[in-house]
Design a protein around this nucleic acid. Sequence first.
DNA 1: CTGTTAGCGCCTTCAG
DNA 2: CTGAAGGCGCTAACAG
Lengths: 337, 337
Amino acid sequence: MDDQETGPLKSIADLARLAGVSVSTVSRALTGKGALSKGTRGRIQALADRHGFRLNVAAQNLRLGRTGAIAVLMPLGLARGLQLSDPFLVTMLGFLADALTDRGYDLLLSRVSPDRDDWLDAFIRAGRADGVIIIGQADQGAVLGRVAAHYRPMVVWGEQGAGGGPAMVGADNEAGGRLAAQHLVERGRRSLAFFGDIDVPEFAARHAGFLAGLPASLRGGVALVCSPLTPEASHAKARDWFAAGNRPDGIFAASDVVAMSLVAAAADHDLRVPQDLSIIGFDDIPLARLARPPLTTVRQDIEAGAHHLVDLLFRRIGGEDAGSVQIAPELIVRETS
Amino acid sequence: MDDQETGPLKSIADLARLAGVSVSTVSRALTGKGALSKGTRGRIQALADRHGFRLNVAAQNLRLGRTGAIAVLMPLGLARGLQLSDPFLVTMLGFLADALTDRGYDLLLSRVSPDRDDWLDAFIRAGRADGVIIIGQADQGAVLGRVAAHYRPMVVWGEQGAGGGPAMVGADNEAGGRLAAQHLVERGRRSLAFFGDIDVPEFAARHAGFLAGLPASLRGGVALVCSPLTPEASHAKARDWFAAGNRPDGIFAASDVVAMSLVAAAADHDLRVPQDLSIIGFDDIPLARLARPPLTTVRQDIEAGAHHLVDLLFRRIGGEDAGSVQIAPELIVRETS
DNA sequence: CTGTTAGCGCCTTCAG
DNA sequence: CTGAAGGCGCTAACAG
């Protein structure tokens, strides 16, 4: 195939020498930018192809003052990589990867430890990415607010704080909580509980909405159980809680994984779902439908969320001062309620 | 805080000017490399800290001829980002992110379309990453083999091919299949099926091991059902298959998601699991234990797999000619068998 | 111990 | 339409 075996082409200069033109001509030919005669351009492109030469993206980016990558950071999951295993986060990650690729950007998945207060500033100043998407503000609201004040290309998935914070995209968690409450009440449930850690803002909003959606007579009796998120830990928590003799007839869980743990723990204690106990999750992860019984849940549209995140980010990169977006949740009634 | 407001420090040169030293001194101070008096180093580091200055990683990497990133590519999941949602892949991704971060590398998640034959060469030549981890060879065995012949820093998760291919890490899928077969036989199951797409090499090996683990008398009667991998699609496939009147008493599924779909579909057809039908999955994803009934499965140690992948990759980056690794699977008996 | 110098591979004015 | 030259921000010899 190779008529002239000149060794691997390391740089644009090698190719220029080979083609008998200058480096700038090669650059113009390969980037498609700048005026160039049709003939030369075609000839050089063919030559590059034949030798398998591609512009070095790193150098290109340095010169252009960009990186071609968007960082996705998940403060929630920093302590253990395993936290990343939450199906919701992962599904989100997949959609983000697609949306970013469509725009010609790479997704940089970088674990950062929110141990020091300046973890985010430090990451940003390292210049590894042209923008940052944060999934789950966790307890870093203050940090995010401070950084947002002077760094534009950042968007956050999570619960809308009181104005002035970073640009956010998220489900209307409070509305979701109300949906769950109304549904349980319609089912005749009266002894209720919420499973989730309300130190996480999203979960706090779900909890608040849940209470708000209840008649005043029930509101005071709602048990609040601070459950972890992983399958193992939440299952253990639920089992202990049932073992302690708690017998509610309706539970709203902060996530589908927690809800599935509850279903499993209920079975361990011979509680029938949904006859004795209604359980509602949140997220509608793909596996929720496959659970036995199929899980009733409040759906967040993850794909729409990912697209909004990316749209918003690129608007802000483009200089627009685009603001937050909220996505309406939807109750999906299956068989655990 | 800032005693001298000089505007944001854009580069090492600004800081050098501010500190009254040369750029190389600043470089030495901030990288910690090279000889430098304790005093100057401390002074410059303090100054950098005070002004929030950090070395630009992109420029640093260009100079060093590296990128500081490892690409993770998943040819399986390229058509739709959603494919990434398989819990196994996702869990793997989390462990990889951790292992790479520990070594100071970023994880570049880049969707590439294996449409043209040179997708991998093109990606590599763009120079975006210092190494490549491929999760799931899918039908790209030929491409991987060819690239491996001239590109060292690449490792593949999947099924060991006949020698000469790329460096691989993977579970011993055939042994896993045998474990499943022996277990079903011990349970007295005689009418068997395998659910999975044997065009995928890993699944083909699981299928082959399954047959090999069976007494000759049963081997011929094993149904082979080509099932997709996503929850929705595999559930539909299983339901249709039961609806067509098929009534095996033992099924080995290519993945836990497929197994959970089978459990759900069996329930739709009033088949009791495990009384009427034993089902075994593969992977042992975190949710397998939470399924109702908890799923019997063949466990692959995902964390060990991720560590082997990263170890192997860096050995190869370091010039070693390290070869493949195989991980022993383990049967986890729960309640679907 | 510190400064000077020459690039890493590319893009982009500015001339011709 | 094409070439020459400077520089993106940083590091690593080589001098001093």
